[in-house]
Structure formats: C-alpha cells, structure tokens
Design a protein around this nucleic acid. Structure first.
Lengths: 151, 151
DNA sequence: GAGAAGATATTGAATATTCAACCATTCCAT
DNA sequence: ATGGAATGGTTGAATATTCAATATCTTCTC
C-alpha cells in the first residue's frame, strides 16, 4: 500500500490553485448567469432567494431569513423594505416573542416566486446538460459536506 | 446497462439544492474564514489576490488584473488607488500601447504578499486536514472544469 | 419581581460598488 | 493619411452594503 498520491499545495501556488479562489470564481460565474435570467423579471438573486424561502407560507423571522438567504441583517432589512413597498412581502410582529418580526410573502410575491422558479430551474437544467449529471451531483454533494464541516 | 440513477432536480426543490446557492454559501463561508486570517495584516482578500498576481514581477494591465482578481474595472481602479497611496503597488504607462496602464508591486508590496501567502497557505492546510485531501482535490478539479465550461 | 444581561431588529453615517458617460489611444477601412 | 469604430482606463453620481449605535423586548439571577 502506497501513501496518498496527493501532493500538498506548494508554498507559492498560483492563486488559481486556492480553494477560496476557485469557489469565488465559480460562484461569481454561475450566479452571474442566474442573475441574467432572473433579470427577465427585474429581480436580483437575493429577492428570489427570499421569495423562495417565504413561499412555504410560514412566517420566518428576520434572523432566520438572513441566514437562509446569505445576507446580513441590515442588508436584509433594507431589501425587505423595498420588497414590502413592492407588495411582494409583509411583516407581522411575532405574538410569542415580540422582539421578532415574522415575514410572509403576499399572493403577488408567491406568483412572482413561481415564475422565478421556472427561470432558475431551467438554468439548473442547462448546467446539468453542459456539465453532466454525474459531475453536477458530485459537486453538489462535495459542497454540502464542505459547508457542513466549515460551519 | 441501466440508465443513470440520478434524478432530475424537482420543479420546486428547496433552495439548498440549487448549485448556484451551494456555491454562494460555500464561497461565502470559506472566504469569510480566509478574510479573518488576512485581517491580521489588515488587508482584504482582493488586495491579497492583487498582490499575489503582481508578485511575479511582470507588469499587468488593469483589464488583465481585473479578470484575474474577480473585480470589475471601476472597482479595481479605486482599490488600486488606495494600494498605490499605501505604496504597495505602482502604475506605469505601457510604452507599446499607451492606452494601457501596467501595474507592478513595490518591494513593500512583495514583502506583504509573502506574509499574506503564509496566512492563506495555512488556511488551505487547515481545510485539507478537516475536510480530507481527497475531497479537497476532487472539489478543486470539479470547480475547475465547471469554470472552464461555464466561461 | 427588579434589574442586569442577552437577543432581535432597525437606523444613520461611513464606506464600497456599480452604472453610465467620458477621454485618450489604437485599429481599420477607405 | 483621415475619419469612424473599437479598446483600455478613469471618473462622478447613484446605489448598495457595512459598521456601530440604538430601541425594544425577553430571560436570567438574586
């Protein structure tokens, strides 16, 4: 039995060998493509994420939502302000813990979410076609386990 | 022979099943950790990338650099302004094509780059330890090929 | 149960990013 | 060679994000 063939990252490896860089590059590119599709509805990616999470119909607190959609609290507050004035979502104070604000999406928001889901779904399919189902699935599973350990 | 076992993404899959989301989440988390380390030197990730690219000693045009460090042009211009006033980098007009500006890093910049490389390298090692060499390598190769096809 | 400590969300000022317009230079066609 | 298109970079205004401070409510402790 032979020791692992994998060589350690050389001290002065090019930036393209760093995991942090590869993740940033891939994320940037894929999200740029997704963004281009969602712009058909004039909606930035973060709003799609918010609508998607809220379309389960349950109330979600701001903190919960911020984690789920990868935004920090003040940024989310301001984005929700915009979406509320577009009548896509609305706030209700939590009766059990009155510090909390529960977010819901309106019928209008839910309808938009559905149209956005179609656009996002078609992008996923496009990736799977070009890149291969196997590779796509492998990549997703590796990312999930990285996220789990890194958290 | 059996057809692929991989099932297509359901129409209303949770957001955590979307590749774009997983990439954003993983990139955010890993880069947040890297950022925390680089802050020991008071430098944001983008400046590390810039210094790393420029420490080959050759001149790099702004456009070239913007691509390499994942910033768009105006953002890069302003960041270079700051780094130039910190005497980390300097501009020289390209003699062959006077539209271009070539960027170089100073000795001070190169020294900082070396310290940053150590911090970044130790993070890579930390990831490889916690996550496994095999998984880390697999993930990198999958990301590289995704980037290649998506470009 | 009173008061301190912690949690949740928002705000306002400072900072950073983006979009569109701009200037300078080079390339290309005539 | 000359005028128009294309390329490379910067700037300024508009927009978005972040940090620190704040207000409100809950929980814990004595």
């Amino acid at each position: 039995m032979v020791k692992s063939q994998i060589k350690p990252l050389p001290k002065n490896a090019p930036i393209t060998e760093h995991l942090a860089y590869l993740l940033a590059q891939a994320s940037r590119e894929i999200n740029r493509q997704l963004d281009a599709r969602l712009r058909q509805e004039g909606v930035p990616i973060e709003q799609w994420r918010i609508l998607k999470v809220l379309s389960d119909g349950k109330g979600h607190s701001m903190g919960e939502l911020a984690d789920a959609v990868l935004l920090n609290h003040p940024t989310l507050t301001k984005m929700i302000d915009r979406m509320a004035s577009d009548a896509l979502v609305y706030r209700l104070q939590d009766a059990d813990d009155r510090r909390k604000v529960l977010m819901y999406c309106s019928d209008r928001g839910r309808a938009l979410a559905q149209r956005l889901n179609l656009l996002a779904h078609s992008q996923e399919e496009h990736i799977a076609e070009n890149y291969g189902n196997r590779a796509t699935e492998d990549l997703k599973r590796l990312l999930e386990s990285l996220i789990e350990r890194a958290g």
